[in-house]
Write a protein that binds this DNA or RNA. Structure first.
Lengths: 196, 196
DNA sequence: TTAAAATGTCAGTCAGTACAGACATTCATT
DNA sequence: AATGAATGTCTGTACTGACTGACATTTTAA
């Protein structure tokens, strides 16, 4: 089909744009670079997206990150701290890693993009609430010591955000299973710190 | 003194540049904007810094948080886990907060700036080593349980980086003493998770 | 084979922006 | 008050980069 080909072209241009934007930011990349890198002419880029700004917006829309994040909430918790935290952090990092370039891109985009800030903070907020409720319930079940559930949730989330950020920017050497081991140790620490 | 006045002008331009760069990135701000916002003419900006690129470089090495970071290493550890972690995290966040705009700026700058990546990762690396050695020694003294010292150090650091990042971007409402409470709770969690 | 859809080429427009020179003006110091 | 340093103003240059239109070429589907 023709429409299929058209779609593939758009797809290729978008992913290339995300790739370059994530490295050098929106203003640091030219439409010519994007088109060339994607293997098309600049003209084709504009035929597909009309403007650079629109290309950016289409790239952001592609952010299915939000929808995927929902899968975390659907994580079947079994009310066992270690198991649950492991599952949650694994899901979290899978999603963050899949969307790492988009995330880097978003972090580089200025504060001048309206609504973006709220948009990109909506899902983390939901995740925080989800975790807070989880810890609250665990307290009721007397499976963890009495703590400020929200603060523990924030701590767990920001710790994992830190991990994800470090992995994205290649700060530490997270080769092979190193990253998984780190997650395991951090979950173990939480578990030991919270179980009565 | 005349040289004093000159210096003050440079200072004002640099801080303004950092302020704007941190919001919209290097390419998202014009020299005209910087000059105007700083209260000078564009010509003065160029008389002081010759080029925009040079202004960026001066901004980067004038506000190097690296030296301040050294004060963390000079933190007098007393080999009491809770006290030491509290002191370290407090120092860390003081420095991160002071340099928050510079840090935001650095995060937005593309990977095309040579050497910047290594430069901005040098001090966190040192801090990681410092902390790793600390946990190692605490193990020897049998004040904490046997764990992978490096992984715990990474966990503690990335958690705090996550906090700092959240505070910089205003993700959560860290008003009044909320942030301090968060630090306290997270240190308590670590302490409980590591003490035998 | 053929028509339509998709892409390429190339030349060009237009706005924005880093930066320079000439000259006027303000400011601090004596 | 006078002088030199610092700054302002204004004009201009050179270049980049988003975006367009006309026309040619390739690709796809019937």
């Amino acid at each position: 089909m023709a429409s299929n080909r058209k779609q593939e072209t758009s797809e290729k241009i978008i992913t290339t744009a995300i790739d370059l934007f994530s490295k050098d930011g929106y203003n640091g990349v030219t439409t010519e670079q994007i088109a060339k890198e994607a293997g098309f002419s600049e003209k084709t880029l504009f035929r597909h997206f009309q403007s650079k700004q629109n290309l950016l917006e289409k790239a952001i829309d592609r952010y299915h990150y939000g929808e995927e994040m929902r899968s975390i909430f659907e994580s079947k918790v079994v009310w066992n701290l270690q198991e649950d935290l492991t599952l949650i952090s694994q899901n979290y990092h899978r999603i963050m890693y899949q969307n790492r370039k988009l995330l880097k891109m978003l972090m580089k985009i200025g504060e001048n993009v309206p609504g973006l800030h709220q948009y990109s903070h909506r899902h983390p907020e939901l995740l925080k609430e989800f975790l807070t409720n989880y810890f609250e319930e665990m307290k009721n079940r007397e499976k963890i010591i009495p703590v400020d559930a929200e603060k523990i949730a924030i701590t767990f989330l920001y710790m994992n955000f830190g991990f994800a950020n470090g992995r994205m920017n290649g700060s530490c050497d997270f080769r092979d299973g190193e990253f998984e081991k780190l997650l395991k140790d951090s979950v173990a620490l939480f578990t030991r710190g919270l179980t009565p």
